[in-house]
Design a protein around this nucleic acid. Sequence first.
RNA 1: UCUUCCUUAGCUCAGUUGGUUAGAGCACCUGACUGUUAAUCAGGGGGUCGCUGGUUCAAGUCCAGCAGGGAGAGCCA
Length: 476
Amino acid sequence: MRTKIKDILTSEQVDYSVNLKGWVRSFRNNQFIALNDGSIIHNIQVVINPETTDESLLKSIQTGAALSIEGTVIASQGKGQTVEVVANSVTLLGECNPEEFPLQAKNRPSLEYLREIAHLRFRTNVFGAVFRVRHSIAYAIHKFFNDKGFVYLHTPIVTASDAEGAGEMFRVTTLPFDNPPRLENGEIDFTEDFFGKSTNLTVSGQLEAELAAMAFGEVYTFGPTFRAENSNTTRHLAEFWMVEPEVAFNDLEDNMNLAESFIQYIIKHVLDNNMEDLKFLDERLINEEKQKPANERSEMGLLEKLQFVIDNQFERITYTQAIEILLQSKPYQKKQFKYDVAWGIDLQSEHERFLVEKHFKKPVIVTDYPKDIKAFYMRLNDDGKTVAAMDILAPGIGEIVGGSQREERLDHLTKRMAEMDIPTAEMYWYLDSRRFGTAPHAGFGLGFERMVLFITGMTNIRDVIPFPRTPKNAAF
RNA sequence: UCUUCCUUAGCUCAGUUGGUUAGAGCACCUGACUGUUAAUCAGGGGGUCGCUGGUUCAAGUCCAGCAGGGAGAGCCA
């Protein structure tokens, strides 16, 4: 029966036998093995007697090797740790050639280099911490919604809808790409394709979630999402995970309250359950920021920031108020913004960053955007110019949540779709929800990896997903 | 996709106004030591300077193209 290193290190007990299995992080003095099994960020010190250990076995205890160890947990005889394991026997499970294994204890591989060996980077402290936290966030999401009585809805990965307008899509087809069947006018004949129509990978599960919300009341999706945009930034992936709650009878205010309590719940869960990893990530961030000039360093440490977010309410302003604040801001008056500010523009990154990082210094919820810069399904406000949308902007990340109250009035919805050239005929299944017992409802989408970025303090989204899919990169 | 920067040993990086056999630290190998804490000490091996072409008596260094990567931006979650 294997004992996890986490259980040994978090227990005060000594003088009991254990079987440990894990991977060697370092081997000092031919006598001290730092062993890690991924259950906790810390290693356990295993002490062996070099006199009584077979010489070829001794040589095989190299960084990265997998070992099984029978031994006894004792109070440490040396400084630096409270308990250690004295080995009775050591078994080599898998050797690790040190001339080829890149993760040697004293190497300082960059995050960029580790990204190129993403299949091995789990064996480092940084990525161990990041992916344990990622798991914990995913668990907290399910727990939050489950405890509130939401139904977890699996929306399709392959969709036929091309009307959502959420960016470029990956096509799904079994047609031969070198010689597809064609119609008389030369266009590709998708009636011969697998699904009998043109299909692609989902860009959002929202429209389907709305249908289920109109039956269960409260649902959420949590699944992979795909965008074929040629985006090369620290906060975009071609394949990412998105959480999309959708709630019948909620208005915009209810929606904001749900989103805010949701984010605070997740952060609290991680603070309560992953403090060892967070402490390590906090120190990592401090060290990384030492490289930066003083004026670019963040004002708060990671732990401080997370505590701040759960202790303080998010700032809530309308789009119109946001524009006014920007027009009166120093950077605007000194002409330091690259993009002009006027009512009707889409807020640019520099504008969002000013509001969040300089003006309010906390997460900000911006509501009631002009209808022309938002999606067709958002509910038209009484002013006829704005829609009941809300974006949550987070320091260092930008938009982490985008949501709205949905347009439940059939006539308003079809009018808006016509204005935006969205074909209503093939969206009959969506419009049916407004024909048969329509009701006010609202929901939002949260970018899961952006949440992981925010909580771990990592700065590149490729470092918070196990196998990142980005333009020109789908290795492993 | 645009702007900009980068690519030299397994890793992290130096490399002068273009000028002899291209360097360091760590890793690795050999030996020593044995209660160490990214162990330490001594010695050793290791490079088609991203690729292709050009300028030049001479290119890691200058120029062009290509590839890969980073940081911004756009699009968005």
